[in-house]
């Protein structure tokens, strides 16, 4: 059983046991447009919640991706090196960025679930 949580900065984290998979939301990829490069963190890299963890480059601009929680990177999505457009095609699936340990599960409690995030995004578009 896995749960997906969202940040106000449009990252998502899907937690399965003690590992979380991180990416950017469908809304975020739409805002970015065509993704042409993703700079991913090396496995072993440790982050505090809110640290800059990755960079996503669209045709137009570079945007930083923040670690949604505290933890250490266990795997980066190497498929994005060859085909960064996977972020556009499937932002909340195949377009994931990296997997990380969940150091403090309490951090998840302050994040939005899917429905709360949907409402949050709807307000941004108004």
């Amino acid at each position: 059983m896995s749960d997906t949580y969202y940040t106000r900065d449009h990252e998502w984290i899907r937690v399965d046991g003690d590992i979380g998979t991180v990416g950017i939301s469908e809304y975020a990829q739409e805002q970015l447009g065509d993704v042409v490069f993703v700079e991913l963190p090396e496995p072993g890299k440790a982050f505090d919640q809110g640290d800059e963890a990755a960079v996503v480059e669209s045709v137009k601009a570079a945007s930083e991706i923040y670690a949604p929680i505290t933890g250490a990177v266990v795997e980066a999505n190497g498929d994005l090196d060859d085909d960064p457009s996977k972020v556009n095609a499937d932002a909340e699936g195949d377009g994931w960025f990296f997997r990380m340990t969940v150091a403090d599960p309490a951090e998840l409690e302050d994040m939005m679930d899917g429905n709360a995030y949907k409402a949050y995004v709807a307000e941004l578009d108004d």
């Binding site: 990252e11 805002q31 970015l32 669209s58 137009k60 923040y66």
Partner: peptide
């Protein structure tokens, strides 16, 4: 994610 600096 930092939003692209397009503004509205």
């Amino acid at each position: 994610m930092t939003a692209p600096e397009d503004g509205h």
